[in-house]
Amino acid sequence: MPKALLFIPDISGYTRFINNTEISHQQHIITELLEILLDTNDIGLELAEVEGDALFMYKADQIPDPEEILSLVRRMFIRFHSHLRYYDQYRICHCGACEGATGLNLKFVVHQGEVSYLRLKDFKPKPQGREVILAHRLLKNDIESKEYILLSHAMEQVSKNQILEIINAKTLQSGQQQYGNEDVGLISYHYADLGHLKNHVEEPEALRPAHINPNPLILEKKINIKPVDLFEIMINFDHRLKWNPGVEKITYDEKEMNKSGSQHICIIQGKEIEFETIQGPKEPGVWSFGEKSKVPIIGEVYVYFMIYPDEIGSKLKVEVHPNPSSRWINLILPLFKRKYRSILKDLLSNLKSYAESI
């Protein structure tokens, strides 16, 4: 049977969530991270299967050089944590999944051996056999570190010096694991901690300060629903068309979590209007976010949404902060605010009806 490299990046660190918002956001975050790992693969590894929060990848016939394998591990690890650091700075949600994302960990298991392939119709071949079982068993081990690269005994072509140099590991340690199975048994391996590579993660660009108008338009609405659920309805574009009848269509990146810098386009009265998600005012216990758009004639308009806990559920406060494109625009701002107030009143009534009905 031909040999293959078996390569498994595995994400861990999330606790179990029962809240629908947290479950949904967890899935979005994990999906983004897995796609980053796949995009970083430039040595021709094939994806056999997505296994929960892990990728089962392989390379048949020609095993990549040790330098290629170790360099890929280094790049994947740094890009993984770069994205987490970026997300933590730009996120607008404070649910358990979003706040806990920076605590996610990444480890790698690398093994090689003879494999056979399961071939079904037009699906890609999937490696199977004893070596595949062994590689997956190695994910369960007694290594104390949460982030590491584990190289099985079969990866003897990877030298200690290569590991220490390419991933800047301080030490390379040896380990053994008894898996209590006649087909697997006692397995030896080497491993190195990867946590130090976080020092190579760059800080994301600082957020731009929000625009604040000294005389904003302010509206409030009480809605009988939990703040976290109301927040999800408002930031989830799948809900937007259901409570904003003025929007004919919304286009956005369905795979991306809505965060600062996220963009979406609304078709309103046949015209495309671009919106950008921004950070809302920071207040303890308050769920907030904002959206920036360009209104013809007026210029940029910043709208902030703050959701406060209330005795019946939530109190939603909306602040509209125009940023006039020129001084003379200030003369027509009162007219703009009257029109915008009327639109917002109807919109908030629709939102209340929809939110309280689901």
Rank of each mutant, 00 (worst) to 15 (best):
L197T: 14
I11W: 02
I212P: 03
W287G: 02
D39L: 11
Y117P: 03
I273N: 08
C98G: 07
H81C: 05
M234H: 07
L172W: 10
I250T: 13
H94Q: 11
L37G: 04
S145Q: 11
V228W: 02
L207S: 05
E256P: 01
L331E: 13
D142Y: 06
Q157P: 01
L172P: 05
E35K: 13
I36A: 09
Q157H: 11
I8C: 00
I298P: 01
I235T: 15
S152A: 10
L186M: 05
G44Q: 08
N161E: 14
E319D: 08
C95N: 04
Y304D: 00
D61T: 15
S145T: 15
G100C: 05
N258G: 07
Y58C: 00
I30F: 07
P125G: 07
H153D: 15
R338G: 14
G290R: 03
Q269S: 11
T277N: 06
E274T: 15
A4T: 14
F77M: 06
P227D: 12
N41M: 08
L207F: 03
S82N: 09
R137G: 02
S293C: 07
F231Y: 13
V286E: 00
G195H: 10
A169P: 00
K222L: 01
E51S: 11
N41D: 15
P296R: 04
N161V: 14
I265K: 02
M306W: 02
A135R: 01
L207K: 11
H28Q: 13
H83D: 09
N258F: 06
L333A: 05
I250Y: 03
F7I: 15
E182T: 13
L172D: 10
L38S: 09
E147Q: 08
H200K: 12
I268H: 05
I358K: 11
L34N: 11
Y87W: 03
G175N: 08
L5F: 04
I11L: 04
V109A: 06
S353W: 12
L47Q: 12
D253P: 04
D183Q: 11
S260T: 15
P284A: 09
H196W: 08
K146Y: 04
